[in-house]
């Protein structure tokens, strides 16, 4: 007999819902997204799931599998205990639309607040690999929003208005540390994007499927840059002397 697993999937919409159990046959190497597709194809054709690449490249298929925020296309069934039902729930921090699909449009609105790349005037387009390496880590982000989902500032404290979330600190780190970028986003980080709300508890780093070291490499360095400009009397004085323009955006 073929091995089977039970998936306990959330079915419902913004108004409410419940979990429903589905029996799914397991094939070698199968991932949770395959199981969801099986359910769509055979048991519940209207089960709403987002996905695109099925290869961990697009960041569409985020959900919470057994309580852990994951890409369903990269979560292998054989890594999960199949003696109990596997729960698959939508991301908790975003409003539900239907089944596993949530409304992530807030993220796109936050992104608009971040000033785009602007080269320093008169730069030469020669860039050293040594400068590129650090930034490329941030550019790996596939916008799965799992970090946004797990971050307790959003998940538990709903600070959507004051706080941009780890994904956008990663994006800003990529801009701020871009060797040719001429803008300064420290004021924005402190005041509008609320980097101070992050208490560096690293859940974002734990869930990032791209293994971006979000807290250590993006958030903490940005916090240090904010300190340079707003909290450290010595560097502030030094900047004044040198006549750095603090063009806050």
């Amino acid at each position: 007999m073929m091995k089977e697993a039970t998936l306990r999937v959330f079915r419902g919409d913004s108004k409410g819902g419940q979990t429903v159990d589905y029996r799914v046959p397991i094939a070698p190497g199968m991932v949770v997204l395959d199981a969801l597709h099986y359910i769509q194809g055979h048991l519940a054709p209207d089960l709403a799931v987002r996905w695109n690449c099925k290869a961990g490249k697009c960041g569409s298929c985020s959900a919470e599998v057994n309580g852990r925020p994951r890409l369903t296309c990269k979560t292998r069934m054989d890594d999960l205990p199949v003696d109990q039902p596997i729960t698959v729930l939508p991301m908790k921090s975003f409003p539900r639309i239907k089944d596993l699909v949530t409304d992530v449009s807030w993220n796109y609105r936050v992104n608009r607040k971040i000033p785009a790349f602007e080269p320093r005037p008169g730069v030469e387009w020669k860039i050293s690999q040594l400068d590129v390496d650090r930034v490329q880590e941030f550019r790996k982000c596939i916008e799965c929003f799992l970090c946004q989902n797990v971050c307790h500032v959003l998940r538990e404290h709903d600070k959507m208005e004051q706080f941009a979330g780890p994904r956008f600190f990663v994006r800003i780190a990529g801009l701020e540390m871009h060797p040719l970028d001429g803008r300064d986003r420290a004021g924005l980080l402190k005041d509008q994007l609320g980097i101070g709300f992050c208490n560096i508890t690293k859940c974002c780093t734990e869930v990032c499927p791209e293994e971006i070291r979000i807290t250590d490499n993006a958030i903490i360095p940005l916090k240090e840059r904010v300190v340079d400009e707003f909290y450290d009397p010595l560097t502030m004085l030094f900047r004044k002397f040198r006549g750095d323009k603090v063009q806050s955006v």
Partner: peptide, 12 residues
């Protein structure tokens, strides 16, 4: 034919 409503309905 499809089951369910017009709300995010992959079958449709």
């Amino acid at each position: 034919s499809v089951e369910g409503s017009r709300l995010f309905n992959p079958g449709w």
